[in-house]
Design a protein around this nucleic acid. Sequence first.
DNA 1: GGAACAGATGTAATAATATTACATTCTTTT
DNA 2: AAAAGAATGTAATATTATTACATCTGTTCC
Lengths: 227, 227
Amino acid sequence: MNMPRIPHPARSRNQTSAATDNAPVQAGHDSAVQAGDPYGFSEHTRGLLDCAATLCSRQGGRMTAQRRDVLGLILQADAPVGAYDLLEQLRVSDRRPAPPTVYRALDFLLEHGLIHRIERLSAFVPCTHLSHEDEADPSGASASSSARSGHVVSACGHEHGACGVHAAQFLICRACGGVTEIADTPRILDMLRTVCREKAFTMQSASVEVEGLCVTCTGQQEAGTER
Amino acid sequence: MNMPRIPHPARSRNQTSAATDNAPVQAGHDSAVQAGDPYGFSEHTRGLLDCAATLCSRQGGRMTAQRRDVLGLILQADAPVGAYDLLEQLRVSDRRPAPPTVYRALDFLLEHGLIHRIERLSAFVPCTHLSHEDEADPSGASASSSARSGHVVSACGHEHGACGVHAAQFLICRACGGVTEIADTPRILDMLRTVCREKAFTMQSASVEVEGLCVTCTGQQEAGTER
DNA sequence: GGAACAGATGTAATAATATTACATTCTTTT
DNA sequence: AAAAGAATGTAATATTATTACATCTGTTCC
Ligand SMILES: [Zn+2]
Ligand SMILES: [Zn+2]
Ligand SMILES: [Zn+2]
Ligand SMILES: [Zn+2]
C-alpha cells in the first residue's frame, strides 16, 4: 500500500539521533560511496540507498556521498522536503552548505529518476520506483526490463533514464501534507500519450498533481462537520 | 484551433502602443468597471474582459479596474506571464505597484476560473473557457450550463466557480514557450476522477502539465537534425 | 447625510526558492 | 605525472511570494 505517509506533521525534520555507529555502508559496488552516514539512516533507507547507487551507476552516474546524503534525507522524510529544509539538515558542526550544493544533488537525482519534484509544493519526494526495485530484488542486481537500452521502464508505469520520458502522478493532501505517487497504473500516462499524439506534441516530461484530501483526512473532516 | 501562441519570443512585453483613444469600454453591466484602458487592449481583448466581468459578477465577484488590467495583460500576452512581468507592465508614470497588488489580483482571477497558473513556469495564462464563452455568446448574456448553482461547468471539460473543482491540462513547448490548454476533452479529468475514487481521495484541484515540443517546433527540430 | 462595515488597495519589509559565475578539489584518462 | 572531466565550494544575486498593517472606497443601515 501507499498511503499518505503520516497524519499531521508536514515537513518533519530528521531527528539527528545517535544511531550512527553502525556499519560504514560502503556499498560494495563500483560507486564512489564512502560516507559514514552521519544522519542515522534506518537500515531500510540504507538498503534503498545502495539500490539507488547501483541503479544510477548502471546509467553512468556516480552516487557520491553528497548525493547519497540528500537522497537519504528525502527517503527518510515522511512528507515532501524543500531544498532549504535539506540545506538545514545537511549542516555539519554549525557550517551549512550553500544552495547550489543541494540543488546540484537534486538535479542529479531528478535526472536519474530517483526523486520527483512536486511543482505545487516546490518540494521533493523519493520515487516509489526505488522501493519497488528494492522489493523485487534487494541485492540490487537486476534493474528492470530494458536496461540494455539505458531506458528503464518500471512496472509502476513511469519511465526513467536518459532516453525515457519522466512522468509521474501525485495525490497531495492539503490537510496532512502527505503525498502519494500513483504508480500502480499506466492509465493516466497512456491517456496523456494519446492526447499528445493527437496534437502532434512531443512529450518530454509530464506531471499530474491532484490536490485535495486523502482518505484519512476526508474521514476526519466529515466527522468534524457532520453534527 | 488552439495552437501554441507564437513561434519565438517567449514572455513578450505589451507594446504600450498608442491605441487608447477608443471607447471607454464602460461595460454597461453591474460591475465596477470604469477603466480607461491605458494598455491599448485590442477590441477582442476588451470583449473578453467584458465577458469576464459578467461571468464573475454572476459569481458574486467584483471586476475592479486593477483586476481588469491584470486580466487584460494576461489575455493580450502570447505566452505565460509571470507576476513580476505584470508588475513591470502595470507601472504608471514610473511608479510601479508592489507585489501584493498583483498577487491579489491573480488570486481573484484564479478563484474565479479566469486564469490558470502554470506550476512549472510560475506563470499565468488565460483560461480558454473565456474565449469559448465569448464565441458562444459575445454579449456575455448567458454563461453556461448550471449558473443557478454558482457551479459553472464549461463545455471544455473543466469546472469553474466556488463549488467546482479547478482542473486544467497544458502542453508546454520548451522551444517556443507556447502553452496550449487541452480543454476539448474531459477524458483526462474523467480518468483522474476515476483514480481518485479508487483511492478514496477527495479531489479539490488538479493540474496536468506536459512539457515537450509543439507541432511547429518538433518539425523545426527534425529539419535541423536530419541531414 | 453619516456612522459602521466589508471589501479592496497601498506600502514596507521580508521570506522562500533558485541561479550565476568563478575558484577549487577530486577522479579518471592519457 | 599531466591533462581532462566531473564534482564541489563559495559569494553574490535573481526570482517568486507573503506578512502585517495602514488607508481608501463603496454599501448598508439608521
Ligand atoms: Zn516515480
Ligand atoms: Zn491527509
Ligand atoms: Zn481553463
Ligand atoms: Zn513550440
